[in-house]
C-alpha cells in the first residue's frame, strides 16, 4: 500500500477532476459511470493509507444512501415509470440505475480528491501554480482553521439564548445572527493580527 495519490500536485489534481467531471456531465452512459466509479474506488483503496479506511467508510455512507434514493427516484419518475408506486418498467429501472451510478461516479471522483489532498498543500499549490493572490489563499485558510472555534461559539449562542428564556430551535435565526456579528468582529481581529505579522499585499 502506498499513498501515491497524495503526492500528485494538488492543483493539477484539482483541475483534472473539474475538467473530467465537466466532460462526463455531457456524456450519458451507464458503463462510463460504472468504469469511472470503479476506477475511483480502486484509486482510493490503493492510493490512500489503510489507516484512512475508516474515513473512506464515513464518507461513503451518505454517498451510498443518496445514490440509492436517486435510484428509487429514477425508478418511479424516470421515462416509462408510472409515478409513485406505479408500474415499474425496464426502461425506468435503467433510468434509475443510470442516475444512481452517475451520482456515484461524480462522488467517486470527489472522494479521491477529498481523501488524498490536505488543504494546506492545495492552497500552497493554488498559489504557486494558479497564481491565486495571497490574501485569498491565507484568508480562506484562516477561516477554515477557525472552524472549531465557530462550532463552540455556535453552541454557546444557542445555549445563551435558551438561558435568557428565548426559545431557539435548529432553524432559529437568532444564533445565526449572533454568529454573523461575530464573523464581522473576527474578520477584523484576524486581519489585524495577520497584518501585524508583516502580511502585505497592495
Amino acid at each position: 500500500m502506498s499513498d501515491f495519490m497524495s503526492k500528485i500536485n494538488p492543483f493539477y489534481k484539482f483541475v483534472f477532476i473539474i475538467v473530467f467531471s465537466t466532460v462526463i456531465t455531457f456524456i450519458h452512459s451507464l458503463w462510463l459511470n460504472i468504469w469511472v466509479f470503479g476506477g475511483a474506488m480502486l484509486l482510493i483503496l490503493t492510493g490512500v493509507k489503510y489507516t484512512q479506511y475508516m474515513r473512506v467508510v464515513k464518507f461513503m455512507l451518505p454517498v451510498a444512501f443518496m445514490s440509492f434514493s436517486l435510484f428509487v427516484m429514477g425508478l418511479f419518475f424516470g421515462e416509462g415509470g408510472g409515478g409513485m408506486f406505479g408500474t415499474v418498467t425496464t426502461q425506468s429501472t435503467q433510468t434509475g440505475i443510470t442516475m444512481a451510478t452517475r451520482f456515484l461516479s461524480f462522488a467517486g471522483i470527489g472522494l479521491v480528491f477529498a481523501l488524498t489532498t490536505n488543504p494546506y498543500d492545495l492552497v500552497k499549490s493554488l498559489r504557486k501554480d494558479a497564481k491565486l493572490p495571497r490574501k485569498f489563499a491565507y484568508g480562506m485558510l484562516c477561516a477554515i482553521n477557525l472552524l472549531p472555534h465557530i462550532k463552540t461559539e455556535y453552541q454557546n449562542a444557542m445555549m445563551a439564548f435558551r438561558v435568557r428564556g428565548v426559545r431557539v430551535g435548529p432553524l432559529s435565526l437568532k444564533p445565526l445572527f449572533s454568529m454573523l456579528v461575530n464573523a464581522f468582529r473576527w474578520s477584523e481581529m484576524l486581519s489585524l493580527a495577520m497584518i501585524s505579522k508583516g502580511f502585505y499585499e497592495d
Partner: peptide
C-alpha cells in the same frame, strides 16, 4: 481587503456548516 476575504470565508464556513 484582507478582512473582507476573511469575512467572506467565515460566512462560507458558517453556511457550509
Amino acid at each position: 481587503k484582507l478582512k473582507d476575504v476573511i469575512l467572506a470565508s467565515i460566512i462560507s464556513v458558517l453556511f457550509a456548516f
